[in-house]
Computed example of a mutant assay.
Amino acid sequence: MITVSTDGSCLRNPGGAIGWAWANHDGTHASGGAASGTNQIAELTAVLEAIHAHPGDEPLRIEADSQYAIKCSSEWVHGWKRKGWRTASGGPVQNLALIQAIDRAIAERPGPVAFAWVRGHRGDRFNERADELAGIAAREAREGRASSAQSSVPANAVGGAGRAQEPTVASAARPEPARTTAGTAARAVRATPAPERSEPAVVVDTLF
């Protein structure tokens, strides 16, 4: 099983610079940022980038301290899809483009994806590492330092008052040629993909 910790950072929520990061428990990692966004966008982007960076049929476990990101990715998404991507009250789903991108990424990944919630800032070294990387990326984005690599953040990833803009990349291990999506940027570690699975496998767990 591949285990990856994810985290997001927003320096002023909403509308401030954001950063996202994932930290694989084997020591590899990647991170990036955008000049404007929300904390929710940062957290969801970290999850999306972690899934894209770890394809293949090996089970993937994503540990995050954001219950919002976990529930959007594994629980609430099913009800929203049944309702035509509307909330229970009939309103629009916030950050819809990112949530749909995560849903597609899970469905297209041959191996199952499991989510586990961990308490933030409680000494988990991988959670702390992801938090550190996301913070660095957000500060670099605020200062206008950009990367030429590419990211999977959808162009219409809108949430609250923020919009996902061109991220900067703090670091990544063994980057492959970048994929272009909506003029944004990221680097990530990739394995060899296996044949697609028709239905996503999602498990949610809780760690204390």
Rank of each mutant, 00 (worst) to 15 (best):
D57M: 08
P175W: 11
T38C: 08
S5A: 15
A34N: 04
G33Q: 07
E132A: 10
S198T: 09
E75D: 10
G144C: 13
S36E: 09
W85Q: 06
S74M: 02
P193I: 13
V77Y: 01
A30P: 08
E128Y: 01
E63S: 03
P175V: 12
V204A: 03
A116R: 13
R174N: 15
N156C: 10
P193G: 07
N156G: 05
I41F: 07
I18G: 06
G162H: 04
H25Y: 02
A97S: 09
P200F: 00
G162Y: 05
S74V: 03
G37T: 08
H54K: 00
A105F: 04
A172C: 14
G144W: 07
S152H: 15
A188M: 13
R129G: 00
G27R: 05
S147L: 08
G160Y: 07
F126V: 07
F115V: 01
G8P: 03
D65P: 05
D124N: 08
S152G: 10
P112V: 09
N127Q: 09
F115C: 04
K83S: 09
A170E: 08
A34S: 14
F115Y: 07
V158A: 09
T28K: 06
L48D: 01
V113I: 13
S36P: 01
A178C: 12
A107E: 13
H78S: 14
E196M: 08
C72S: 08
I136T: 08
R139E: 10
N95R: 01
R104L: 09
N39F: 02
I62C: 00
R119S: 08
A105V: 12
G27H: 03
A50C: 12
V202H: 04
H54F: 10
I41T: 04
P200Q: 04
G79C: 08
T3F: 04
I51Q: 02
R109Q: 10
P112G: 09
T192E: 15
G15Q: 14
R145P: 04
K81Q: 15
T28H: 10
G8H: 12
V189Y: 11
L98E: 02
G160R: 06
R125F: 06
D131F: 02
I136D: 15
T28V: 11
R104D: 10
D103N: 09
F208P: 09
A182V: 11
R163G: 11
R197P: 13
W85L: 04
I62E: 02
V4F: 02
A30C: 06
A201C: 11
R109D: 07
R104S: 12
T87F: 03
D26G: 15
G159R: 00
P112A: 11
V202D: 10
A101I: 06
S31K: 05
L96C: 14
N39E: 02
E58I: 14
M1G: 12
A188K: 14
L11R: 14
I136P: 15
M1T: 15
I18Y: 09
T206D: 13
A42H: 11
V202Q: 09
S9D: 06
T184M: 10
I2L: 07
P92C: 11
Q100A: 08
R86S: 05
E75M: 05
D205H: 06
S9V: 11
G32D: 05
E199G: 01
V4Y: 03
N156L: 05
A137T: 03
G144K: 07
L96E: 12
T28N: 08
A21D: 09
G19R: 06
I62G: 00
W20D: 03
K83T: 01
